[in-house]
Design a protein around this nucleic acid. Sequence first.
DNA 1: CATCCAGTATATA
DNA 2: TATATACTGGATG
Length: 170
Amino acid sequence: MKTQSVTLPIFTSAGQFVARYSENGLVELDFPKVGSARRADRTPQRGVPTIPATIRKWHRATAAALKNILAGRLPGKLPPLDLSNGTMFQRKVWNTLRKIARGQTKSYGEIARAIGRPKAVRAVGGACGANPIPVLVPCHRVLAANGKVGGFSGGLNWKRELLAREGVSL
DNA sequence: CATCCAGTATATA
DNA sequence: TATATACTGGATG
């Protein structure tokens, strides 16, 4: 069963992000492709399926939230997030991540304790890496306990950049 | 300070 | 089944 999904671009000062939606909400958000802040290929005008009004509404919310965050502001209203593709464990982790306030950071260990698996810190790292919606689900606010930045699927530059825009100094 | 190890959930081979 | 992770905390040299 291939859930039909819609992929839409978001143009920001930092490049073109790509958001993907299912019938249940935002499924995935991708960073701009490296080095191509230039004009991306336009989706062919012909043959573009009609985009449901619901999804356009979600997309506006996503774009607004993303731009707010990049501007160092609170994201504001978010679209529904469709995390049904993740495991129970991952969803629990992602849900916990969303509770980290802007400008705050947590360690992988703290996340692990928060979900009642204090020793599953490594697994938490894995769940963060599998996070399909970076920025809106702030995996970039999770640092290693010894002050290291850790890793980031979108590239460490992004992690540092996002933190910097939130006023977090490493 | 450098290594190693256990414990954990997942992914991949 | 074995190995490797975006890890941590403790043990050991």
